[in-house]
């Protein structure tokens, strides 16, 4: 059987909000040692989301054998919306069962809610993501990245991200004109405001803003976002929830026609 309790249930609510616009149906994998995982591509196979909540990130975690649970994410989100942000959330499933149970407990235990979501069989392709040394690693406030993506999307459809010793430049162009936003590394002691750019070699890649904007739905999970880039490779946009897990998004670049 599988049983996992998150004292801070709001994290699971935020995780669902971070994936449900990108993916309709997905297989969650519960693993005895690794934890609770999901890997899924969007329907056009342009982007991928990979999330993991570590087994020891849960207040209680029991998983006797690996378990695959296919869920409709919109329906899962409907149920999790019924949990209050302060609630603890426990997930439970039997090895051969066809439902997953969600239990919400209010902090004072005066309200206990039980929801059962029907599981579904989903054919999914699992992609092997090679371990790569990226040419560039950018760490910046997640709210700043969200702001840049949403601002540029009002001007154009794609963003060129170019990274050099000068900093990281986000550029777009559209019918009404152009926009460029440049960020420079800072020496902020305040970790939330830190901008750091590790540069192995300069990179210039173009991505669809629609997907990047969808990734920023994970902003409430973390004050900082980590962006990794290499020439001619998908971008990685990662939000780390300290001591709990992470959600990583991959997006294939656009190339010249």
């Amino acid at each position: 059987m599988f049983e996992a309790r998150l004292t801070e249930g709001a994290i699971l609510k935020k995780v669902l909000d971070s994936v449900k616009d990108l993916v309709t149906d997905a297989n969650f994998e519960a693993d005895p040692t690794e934890g609770f995982k999901l890997q899924a591509m969007d329907s056009s196979h342009v982007s991928l989301v990979s999330l993991k909540l570590h087994a020891d990130g849960f207040a209680h975690y029991r998983c006797d054998r690996p378990l695959t649970m296919g869920m409709n994410l919109a329906n899962m989100a409907k149920m999790l919306k019924c949990a209050s942000n302060e609630d603890a959330i426990t997930m439970k499933a039997d090895d051969a069962g066809d439902v997953v149970a969600f239990m919400f407990e209010s902090p004072g235990q005066e309200k206990i809610s039980d929801f059962e979501l029907k599981l579904m069989d989903i054919d999914s392709e699992h992609l092997g993501i090679p371990d790569t040394e990226y040419a560039v690693t950018i760490r910046m406030p997640s709210a700043e990245f969200k702001r840049i993506c949403s601002d540029l999307a009002t001007i154009g459809d794609t963003v060129a991200i170019s990274v050099s010793k000068e900093g990281v430049k986000f550029s777009t162009t559209g019918d009404i004109g152009d926009a460029n936003v440049t960020l420079r590394q800072n020496s902020e002691d305040d970790k939330e405001k830190m901008i750091s750019i590790e540069l192995g070699e300069p990179v210039n890649l173009t991505f669809a803003l629609r997907y990047l904007n969808s990734f920023t739905k994970a902003t409430p999970l973390s004050d900082q976002v980590v962006i990794r880039l290499s020439p001619q490779l998908p971008i990685v946009v990662q939000y780390v929830v300290v001591d709990v897990g992470y959600i990583s998004y991959y997006l294939a670049p656009k190339i010249e026609d």
């Binding site: 196979h45 991928l48 699992h126 090679p130 998908p234 294939a252 656009k254």
Partner: peptide, 13 residues
Amino acid sequence: RGKQQNLKAFFTM
């Protein structure tokens, strides 16, 4: 603007 590549071109099945 530009041709969107497929993710499967980068990652192994």
